[in-house]
Design a protein around this nucleic acid. Sequence first.
DNA 1: CATGATTGGATAGTGATACTCTCTAATATT
DNA 2: AATATTAGAGAGTATCACTATCCAATCATG
Lengths: 208, 208
Amino acid sequence: MRISALAAEAGLPIATVKFYLREGLLHPGVATSATQATYDDSHLRRLRVIRALTGPVGLSVQQTRMILGLIDDPGDDLYATLGRAVGALPPTVDTRAASDDDPDPFPRARAALEALGQVYDPSFAAVAQLEAALEAVDAAGMPISDDRLLEYGRHLREMAVYDLERMPPEPNAAVEYTVLGTALYEPVLLALRRLAHQDVASRRDLGA
Amino acid sequence: MRISALAAEAGLPIATVKFYLREGLLHPGVATSATQATYDDSHLRRLRVIRALTGPVGLSVQQTRMILGLIDDPGDDLYATLGRAVGALPPTVDTRAASDDDPDPFPRARAALEALGQVYDPSFAAVAQLEAALEAVDAAGMPISDDRLLEYGRHLREMAVYDLERMPPEPNAAVEYTVLGTALYEPVLLALRRLAHQDVASRRDLGA
DNA sequence: CATGATTGGATAGTGATACTCTCTAATATT
DNA sequence: AATATTAGAGAGTATCACTATCCAATCATG
């Protein structure tokens, strides 16, 4: 398969495929001469993952490169790899507070996790993300009550249990499942939540 | 309160406040002369909402303007207003298919909603978002099984019921609660989900 | 009331990002 | 032999969210 066929299959301009090659998101094809290389299904699959991550998931090229790098070359510690992957996911939060000698850099997130009975690890990017998100809803005048936090946390935890029970056994497949699942399923989740709100609202005759 | 005090309170450069004024995100202050205007708490609160929406929620200025417009000037139909608000939320999806005479523009989303027993309204933006998200996960080689969809949908629906049971009675407050709640709580939700995955993973000794 | 700071309003500039285009020499295809 | 395609490199483009600059009009202060 030459680059024109690959681009056509993926529904992308050749220039874009070349761009991904240049950026290191797509592994090079097998060179058959100075001006020719052949590509296979692995390239097509990779392009589809790239488009999913840069599209619906909303990652930048840099973030996508990081995620793909983790899948291609995972450490032997799934927990740490997952942590690194989450750190690459938006919304990106500057973790300036953690580097300072602040004894309690993420008070809201800590309180929330304690209330939920979950581990609190300040080095985990999602903790900083949670802190920023909670600060933002407070500042915007729509604070989240403890009760709501518990309710949300309970459901999300059950969903996490469901997900991890279905994790493939082989380590490499597990990393890909976990990292890609975290990122790719988020847009689905958000869409389903919005639709659930719509559905519930419609059944309550809230119009007019 | 003059613009310098407003900017200082909000922790923003004056230039940025002026930018929001120019863009119509922030309502003008009361002009007291040709070169002076006073601002009050409503401006400060608005700035905080703007920062929450453009920051953690990740909205563009244009999308933020749309959301704020809906809050300031809601229609009398909460259901339709919510629909319009969701349409402004990322990921933005081109609804080209719907405008064609395609008899079934969102097959995956329709199937999912039918399986969940929820209303299917192709004019609702979240339906297009769900379709795009499902297409992306399929293309990326990580399709979502019906079982998983049901599991996710069930939890999200319960969370939606929880949310709507706590909706304020007055229509204007209800719109603000619903629209801002949908948008502002999403980053919290995603962070909690990521942390739930981490927590569950850590308890299963998945490392090494 | 003189003098420096601040403001509204308009215009322009900036830096990041994700492509997209152009070009060249080498090779493939017909 | 004529035409098309390719790799690879560099430059160009469009969008976006600010950010900076300017000016004339006012304010605040001593």
